[in-house]
């Protein structure tokens, strides 16, 4: 076991981890932040998407130890982060939530997309969200939600 330090949604935590533990496991099981979901557990579905130092990553295949000292933003950050709150509201307004399991990952991927490119084209929106699967297949409403933020 060893200690790492993570700043999660603006709060600094010192956490005791197993050396090869995933960042997803640390967030959900050690910090109780269960907004981040585990879908495939193999980096294919994007349900576990979070931002590490501003970049979107799949937390299910991210060695927690490599995030030592990093700034983490999860969907729970929506409480304090006005940008995330706007994205969440846009998803609600456009009915871009069906079962809701992919929503936290979709919202985080949207956050990363708009940070990098505040005025994406339709094509760029789809490419930006291409790492996130929605089994309810409600993609068009999500694209519309992102477009409303441009």
């Amino acid at each position: 076991m060893l200690n790492i330090q993570l700043t999660v949604n603006g709060e600094l935590h010192t956490i005791l981890i197993d050396p090869a533990e995933t960042l997803l496991h640390v967030l959900r099981e050690k910090l109780g932040l269960t907004g981040t979901k585990e879908g495939c557990g193999e980096g294919d579905c994007g349900a576990c998407t979070i931002l590490v130092n501003g970049k979107s990553v799949n937390s299910c295949i991210y060695p927690a130890i490599q995030a030592d000292g990093c700034e983490i933003l999860t969907v729970e950050g929506v409480e304090k982060n006005p940008k995330l709150a706007r994205i969440q509201q846009a998803f609600v307004d456009h009915g871009a939530v069906q079962c809701g399991f992919c929503s936290p990952g979709m919202i985080m991927a949207t956050c990363a997309l708009l940070d990098e490119n505040p005025t994406p084209t339709d094509e760029e929106i789809r490419r930006g969200l291409s790492g996130n699967l929605c089994r309810c297949t409600g993609y068009q409403a999500m694209v519309d939600a992102v477009k409303s933020l441009i």
Partner: peptide, 9 residues
């Protein structure tokens, strides 16, 4: 390669 999340890592 993969998707944005994979390309970042």
């Amino acid at each position: 390669v993969g998707a944005p999340q994979i390309r970042n890592r």
